[in-house]
Design a protein around this nucleic acid. Structure first.
Lengths: 206, 206
DNA sequence: TAGATTGTTAATCGATTAACAATC
DNA sequence: TAGATTGTTAATCGATTAACAATC
């Protein structure tokens, strides 16, 4: 269910704020302001203050925000103050790339198990993780209490996989297949589809 | 420059309409309606009609839209009635996955050349395409008149690559690196970042 | 202190929806 | 013809921005 208390469009911006704070932190900065953040992200200072005001008061007049403090607050709000275990379903080229991606760990996520239905792949390993047979999906995800999954199977199999994930009590699905998944409304779904992004841009071209 | 005649948020939905029409077409359907499309996409029928009305009148009262006709019109509007040549920069796991992705061709895009700065990789091939040295980026992209590029290098190198692409007269960049690229405003940029999508979802979890 | 920047309010701006005449 | 669905207008809804008192 959507918490309409805070608009979803505001929620979508918070990870961007956190990303920027992480960068500033890495660069050795200690403080920032809505003006500074806005400039870096490309939105107005007023919007950042308005967005944050939904959750509390994190700044100080005159001096702005402590980067480490605001970072911590945003991590709390987004529930990435802990690490979410994830399942990955589909070991094609893209699945492989994601399995080998090392950017999850520091941002609240880690892959915990990987599935495929290709007998050639089942039982082999990617990094530390064994590839399980997809028919054990519900069993293993249930047992490991995994709530977040990424789908990197073909468009044709994506809905079927999503149905299994829902049955296994997964609550958030990042879907790389170019189809709209049908899920219960309490299950979060986000799609990543390069074709849509490219076509969005070519509208403005030529 | 953004054509503010039609809101960007409308443009962003058009590829989704096209995707859905393609699916209906593949399923052997000939006609659809704003109601039907809306249901499949998860938005209101009124919104679809309003969006399309920015570009013309594509339907018929009583019977709705011809799928092939509307598909054609949307392809024209989005400029994917032709095939855009693309450059891919960065041959890590992700670059490899994208180079091997076969979903571009039928939707208005094809990879034409690939770059990396790793001497081990330069000169080798992925599929039909040779991997070129990144220091030849401007030369080759210019010569091939490429206007669309995908960045799959590390966060640290992404801005540098973007600068080179801009110099080479690339006009649209799909950026997989987790950084906001600074580009002239006539250059389109879209970002793909799984961390942002995951954190967006975990807000609603627990 | 003076300057800077917050959080919040009210005003503005823009997007979505509801409704309906037109018409296939 | 009767039913369905368009394109469009006006009303509603929601998001962004501007402005400013409070205060570090």
């Amino acid at each position: 269910m959507e918490k309409k208390q805070v608009p979803d469009i505001v929620i979508a911006r918070l990870p961007l704020y956190l990303q920027t704070l992480n960068r500033l932190d890495q660069d050795g900065e200690y403080n920032t302001s809505s003006k500074d953040l806005g400039k870096k992200i490309g939105i107005s200072a007023a919007q950042i203050r308005k967005d944050l005001s939904h959750f509390g008061e994190f700044g100080k007049q005159g001096t702005g925000y402590s980067i480490s403090f605001l970072k911590e607050k945003l991590e709390d709000i987004l529930h990435v103050d802990k690490v979410w275990d994830m399942a990955l379903i589909g070991v094609g080229f893209l699945g492989h790339a994601i399995a080998n991606f090392n950017g999850f760990q520091n941002h609240g996520f880690q892959i915990k198990c990987i599935f495929d239905n290709d007998p050639e792949k089942i039982g082999t390993k990617i990094g530390d993780y064994e590839i399980y047979d997809s028919n054990r999906l519900e069993e293993i995800i249930n047992q490991k209490k995994i709530k977040v999954a990424m789908i990197t199977v073909d468009a044709e199999q994506a809905q079927e996989v999503a149905d299994l994930l829902v049955k296994a009590d997964v609550k958030a699905i990042l879907n790389y297949a170019p189809v709209k998944l049908i899920t219960p409304k309490e299950v979060q779904v986000q799609n990543i589809d390069p074709i849509l992004e490219l076509q969005h841009m070519t509208f403005y071209l030529e």
